[in-house]
Design a protein around this nucleic acid. Structure first.
Lengths: 220, 220
DNA sequence: TTATATATAATTGTATACAATATACAAATT
DNA sequence: AATTTGTATATTGTATACAATTATATATAA
């Protein structure tokens, strides 16, 4: 009767590898050799192989027949496609489930941002980072379609390596803040169209910012 | 240099099982036992297991820990979600890549339908079926985002068992025809909004028709 | 020196053996 | 009769052995 379902090693390995990948423990394009993973994880090749198949299907790894797995490295065009795809999905969710967005949390986030603004520039950055997560989570949680929700989650994970800290440069902090507030205020005012436009603009600016310094450091 | 890449047995088994499933060789909810599949396909359990994992990730099968795989049987609510998800995705593609739709093919399809109308009712059914495929293919092909395209394809496969032949009843043929033509004419007239509305309506009617006689025969 | 061929090692792919778990059925207990 | 318990069987999960393929290093010829 315990809630702890006897997970298979296979699933366990999958989770651990996924975490390692998302934490940036592997560099893009690097090979994941089965034997090495076996030794590191202390299991045989079977569960490792099964985990790799799952990861490949998730779009995180690329399986090259008879040559093993490499951490997927997207060419610039595909990064653009991926970021665009995420934007399209999130805007879709925002539009479709607009009325289901948690207004309470929305107001709280709005207040939090307002409060942060009144304080200094320096403290703002940390808030902005967590605020971004919260904003996207707000949208994600409103999605009452399991298929769409699952896909959005997958895509958000895939996008993780391509997120840039735009607030790294001081001149951006205020503009980013304005973008966020545009979205939130639009939601609170009940204007779905405006909210969608604001969200889309937000993604678009992030995308352009990312592409501007592609090739340089990527924050994981 | 040959284009024929040495496919693994694992992939081969995956393809064969997928085809069998889509062709309706398994009934919903039925178990897929590894040994039996091994015997049928003449391979060992390893490639079968790996194929099953892939199929499960695709959403076709359900893997129950330590109890094997069953052909996924969606409860009515999830069927609704799935059909709605497909509608949302296809409308998204239609809107986003509206200008990239192949007008030539569109005109050809329009003409084909016009021609079919002038002939008798009976011949219409066959045309309608293929026309449906062509219409959705037209939209699918216009999608110039590999991630979105791949997902749409996956979802279309998942929806396959839930497609109903609405033209089975005579009174429907004309109304279905009108729906199709609405979409096509809207595309040809360059009115993206109208086209999207028409497509959405089309899906909505199909969905309602499906739900009306859920529990009865499902055409695969 | 470069290129090619060949042998060797490393790695993935597949089959099989063994272990862990779940299922089915019968016997025992209440 | 219903429930529980035990045992046999079936099935999945994991490890390992072997086969096939690919990568690497070395030697030889141009």
């Amino acid at each position: 009767m315990s809630g702890i379902k006897h997970l298979s090693l296979s699933e366990e390995v999958y989770s651990r590898l996924m975490r390692k990948i998302l934490d940036g423990n592997f560099t893009e394009g690097s090979r994941l050799r089965e034997e090495i993973l076996c030794r590191e994880l202390g299991v045989s090749r079977t569960p490792v192989r099964e985990a790799l198949i799952r990861l490949a299907r998730e779009g995180v790894l690329e399986q090259i027949p008879r040559r093993g797995c490499v951490l997927r490295k997207l060419p610039p065009e595909e990064i653009e496609e991926l970021l665009r795809y995420r934007c399209l999905l999130e805007c879709l969710v925002l539009r479709e489930y607009f009325d289901l967005i948690d207004r309470e949390k929305c107001r709280a986030l709005d207040a939090k941002l307002d409060k942060a603004v009144k304080k200094g520039e320096k403290e703002l950055r940390g808030v902005l980072l967590s605020a971004d997560e919260e904003l996207h989570e707000l949208i994600t949680l409103s999605c009452h379609n399991s298929f769409l929700a699952k896909e959005l989650k997958r895509v958000q994970l895939l996008c993780r390596p391509y997120r840039v800290l735009r607030c790294a440069e001081a001149e951006n902090t205020s503009s980013i803040l304005k973008e966020r507030q545009h979205i939130i205020k639009a939601v609170l005012s009940g204007d779905a169209g405006k909210a969608e436009t604001a969200l889309s603009t937000h993604f678009e600016k992030s995308r352009r910012y990312y592409l501007r310094d592609k090739g340089t450091k990527i924050t994981s």
